[in-house]
Amino acid sequence: MTEIIAGVLILIGAFFSLVAGIGLFRLPDVYLRMHAATKAGTLGGGLILLAVAFHSEQIEVIARALAGIVFLLITAPIGAHLLGRAGYIAGVPLWSKSGEDALAGKYDTQSEFLEGHPPKS
């Protein structure tokens, strides 16, 4: 029985990884690609780790697998956040057809000062 669950989980995980890959391939600019990479990628990796946990049925393996999943869930979004911010500040252009850039006039990339929110220091 656990084999079936593991098999299914692996399949779904692999599917999401594939989706992430395709997203990375087809999406036009860095910000969209980041979504694909982090969301689908983390989900894919997490599910496969979960599959390992189910398949092993040993406590310490499950513990480590869960720790791994938690770890993934923390690091991926932070990584994406950093990249997005750095990319925007470095002036990586948005995709032409994406809506108007909400921050365009208001956020000065050099001094990182958002209008109406003076930097604390």
Partner: peptide
């Protein structure tokens, strides 16, 4: 590079990693 989110997460991540190592 003063991203608040990073600063809050780092101690936790580093602690976990040292334990893991």
């Amino acid at each position: 590079m003063n991203s608040l989110i990073l600063k809050t997460a780092t101690p936790f991540l580093v602690g976990l990693t040292v334990l893991f190592s």
